[in-house]
Structures are given as structure tokens and as C-alpha cells.
Design a binder for these strands. Structure first.
Lengths: 176, 176
DNA sequence: GATATCGTACTCGGATATGGGCTGTCCGAGTAACCACGG
DNA sequence: CCGTGGTTACTCGGACAGCCCATATCCGAGTACGATATC
């Protein structure tokens, strides 16, 4: 039970991108610099977010990343699942069947109670994450956070965002 | 976000030990055989449960493991924390401070909102696990599970449990 | 001066090494049962 | 027959390798911008 540290980076990057106006983009290198992370490694996580349709990428000079949809329609659950994978954390190996007494498969038609309990707990975890929108994170940061830090963040975004020629049709073209 | 498979083994073993009567014990080898697991490896997890005061171990011949307290007072959270560790899954690296603009530490007296949201979700996860007692798992298994599997499990326990001479004072003596 | 063409520089994307932790196994310390012996 | 000592065998506990995934990095494909040569 340990989340990769890429989750933290992904959430902070998404929150930063939420401050980018319109369809402007921000390069991954700028995001990495914003949090003191390795640019090459952060690209991997940003790529995962792009594959999950949370971010959009624009190649070429003046390219970068932006949110694929409004921050109100992105939840923390989306980001966590994009980074950590969609399968549940608890995987039932059905070890109850591996005992010395071999029973017919009809004895195990009922799902494993342990698995059900663990999955129920995890559904509660995911429900809370699903209730937290990215816009909530940004709003809480703007309201509760230190004004200096917020201003510095906004200035950094303003300095590194690259406006795009309005071409909303052709973006993130290929998907293998 | 992926739990080790030792959690599943630990829960099933604890549920099995809940069926052991009185202060009798059950060897780890029998528990491993009961689920088709490697005895040597299961010992590691049972040892963790013992260190967490969930199980008690009795050395020597006719020794083994038993629950340290009633199954009603053992929750799934206890077992999960004993195996996976007590620290939260999400570790905030405070990457918001690592940006190029160096601010005074007074700008970060407020806790990180991302960290708070993730920890809040995890507290919901743990709350559900804390509400599920080991006795609930056993009762659900006895009521909902297949009667044949339950009877086989009870017979296995009955065959492998070792009664102890009533000596409740001196058990699990040393703790380093 | 306007336009087509070429070169360049910047971006993302995937393929490639490395390290830590979970997995799996082994051997040693300790203890209670068992048995032999003596009283 | 009962008590005592030694042996034995069984248990747990911790120390030792192996493998897989997350981490970290690099290089290549693709694209828009800018300069340049031409009309």
C-alpha cells in the first residue's frame, strides 16, 4: 500500500495547468522546473495523463500540454487511476481454493468475503477521490494558500504559457 | 497503489485462527497447507502479525499461533496496517516548495491541499476497514459461504489445532 | 515586395538502464514433549 | 511406581538470494517557426 510519487507530481501539474488560460499550452520542461523535478521523468507521467484523455499535447515549438477538459470535470480519481492503473489495489488470489481438500467449483460460486470487504473499502476511497474536483484543489489553493506562493505560481504560469492558434479540431491527433 | 499479496494470506489465516477454540494453537505449517502457500514465506507475515500484537506465538512442539484477543476486537485495518505498514500510502514530498522561486518557510505553514485531500480519502478507506471486524468475516463466511467449504475448513482446524496447558501468563515473552 | 522552400530548433513519445522493495528460501535459537534411568 | 535428567524433534525467528516494478535517463520522430533564395 504505497502510491508512487508520480501521483503527487501529476496532481500538482494538473492544478498548474488549470491556471493556463484558454487553449494555451505549457511545456513539460516548464512544469518540471516549476516543481524541481526531472523533466525527462515527468514526461512519462504527463504522457500517461495524455493517454487517459486528461491532458492534451501539442507537439512542435510553442507546443506543450493543456487540460483536455474543464477543471470542474476532472477529479482526483481520474488522475490517480491514470497514474496507478485502474485495477483495484487488492487482488484476490482465491487462496481459499488452494487448500488440501479439493472441492468442486460449485462450492465457490459466492465471491470471497475478504475480497468483498477490501473492495468495499477501496470503493469508499475512490468515492472520496471522485468527489474532489481539480477545480476544488485550485480554489482551495487560491483561497487558503499563502498569497505570495499563489502569486509566484501565477507569474510562473503567465511567463511560460504559450498561446495557440485557434485550431480546436486537430489536437492530439494520433492514438495508437 | 497495489497491496502485497501477503495481506490476503494474513486475513485468511487470522480468520482461520478465529475458529480455533480457547487457547489452543495452530502451527504455521498447517495454515500454509490450508491455503497452498509456502510455509517459509507465510511465517514472515505471521511474524509481522505477532509483532503487531494481533497474534500470539507459542514455541516448541505442540506450539503455533493463536489470536492475541477476541475476533470481535480485531479489525481488518489492524491486519492491513500490520502487513503494509502504518504510514499513509500517499507521501507528500512538498514539491510545491521546490520551484525556482524560493519563498520563505512562512509561506508554507498551511498544509498542502493535495496532501490533505489524499489523506482524507485514505482516512475514509481506513474507516471502512476499521468497521469490519474479523468476527464479521468469519460470520459472513459461515452464513453465506458454501456449507461444504465451511465444514472442510472446520474439520481442518479441528485436526490441526493443538491444545495448550492453561498457562495464560507466560506467552510471547520476549519483545525486542 | 511577396512567396515558396529549406533548415533549424523545440516539442513530445517511446525504448533503454538502474535501484529498492516484495517475494521466496534457508538455517539457527529455543522450548516442550518424550524416553530412559535411577530411586 | 514416581521423580529426574538427557535427548529429541518440532516450533518460531531472523538472516540470506531472486525477481519484478517504479525510478531515472537518453535518443529519435514530428512539427511549427524563421531565414533565405527566387519570382
Amino acid at each position: 500500500m504505497k502510491l508512487g510519487e508520480g501521483v503527487e507530481a501529476a496532481i500538482h501539474c494538473a492544478a498548474t495547468l488549470a491556471s493556463v488560460a484558454g487553449n494555451s499550452t505549457m511545456p513539460g520542461a516548464a512544469l518540471a522546473e516549476s516543481f524541481g523535478l526531472s523533466p525527462s521523468y515527468l514526461l512519462k507521467h504527463l504522457n500517461q495523463l495524455t493517454a487517459a484523455r486528461i491532458l492534451e499535447s501539442v507537439p512542435g515549438p510553442a507546443g506543450g500540454y493543456r487540460l483536455a477538459r474543464a477543471a470542474e470535470r476532472i477529479t482526483l480519481l481520474d488522475i490517480v487511476l491514470a497514474i496507478e492503473g485502474r485495477e483495484p489495489a487488492f487482488r484476490c488470489g482465491e487462496i481459499r481454493r488452494n487448500g488440501p481438500v479439493k472441492l468442486d467449483a460449485s462450492a465457490y460460486i459466492k465471491p470471497c468475503g475478504v475480497n468483498a470487504a477490501m473492495l468495499w473499502a477501496e470503493s469508499a476511497y475512490r468515492a472520496v477521490l471522485a468527489e474532489t474536483r481539480l477545480s476544488d484543489i485550485v480554489a482551495e489553493y487560491a483561497a487558503e494558500g499563502d498569497p505570495r506562493a499563489f502569486a509566484a505560481s501565477c507569474a510562473f504560469v503567465e511567463r511560460h504559457q504559450r498561446p495557440q492558434k485557434s485550431n480546436p479540431t486537430k489536437q492530439t491527433p494520433a492514438r495508437s
